[in-house]
């Protein structure tokens, strides 16, 4: 792998990446059944707070968008909105085989088959469902990736925004959030 000027981090970025790696605030986009694996990960048994991770209330405050489970065309619009509200640097973690390749409902008219077509996914957690052990393990990987400066999905999204936009529009026609309850 060649290193070009863009990949070299300045000293302050290395320090900042240390802080970013050890304080991971997450926005859980709990659409599917995967949400049920988060409470044991958070509470006494697996205790994610010891790695500096924690849930956050709004996308503005969060660093990681954790998508647990199926995305339908309708929720994907909301996810893209949420992702674009987050502040740089931001990371996306796809959770479960449903975000990876569509899982068991790969042929449904309503569900996405691959998330990285629409958002820059830094890390996938395979499994249906991934156990809390798998979640902790993958977040350990994410921490190492951020520390080394390898988790650059947000930069990829900025640089290839046209491509992502095209995919989003192809599948969703229009990325908008408008329903009768918000009129």
């Amino acid at each position: 792998m060649t290193t070009n000027a863009k990949d070299v981090r300045k000293t302050w970025e290395k320090i900042a990446d240390y802080f970013r790696a050890h304080s991971i605030w997450m926005k859980w986009y709990c659409t599917g059944c995967g949400a049920i694996e988060m409470p044991p990960t958070m509470t006494s048994r697996f205790d994610m707070e010891r790695l500096g991770m924690g849930p956050m209330a709004t996308p503005r405050q969060a660093d990681v968008l954790l998508i647990t489970g199926y995305l339908s065309a309708k929720t994907l619009r909301r996810v893209i909105y949420s992702y674009e509200q987050m502040q740089d640097p931001k990371y996306v973690v796809g959770f479960g085989s449903c975000t990876l390749n569509g899982g068991i409902y790969f042929d449904s008219y309503a569900t996405m088959t691959r998330l990285d077509h629409y958002l820059p996914v830094d890390l996938y957690i395979a499994g249906c469902m991934p156990r809390p052990e798998a979640i902790m393990n993958s977040f350990d990987t994410l921490i190492k990736m951020i520390e080394k400066g390898e988790a650059k999905g947000w930069k990829h999204y900025q640089e290839n925004h046209e491509w992502y936009r095209r995919n989003q529009l192809h599948s969703l026609k229009e990325v908008y959030v408008k329903d009768e309850f918000h009129e």
């Binding site: 900042a16 802080f19 970013r20 050890h22 304080s23 509470t43 205790d47 010891r50 500096g52 740089d88």
Partner: peptide
Amino acid sequence: QRRRGPKFYQQFIDIFKALSKG
């Protein structure tokens, strides 16, 4: 709550991380 809990300097990390973001 019978957890291990974060490092005692976790709050510093959180604050400096938030300040390092856009």
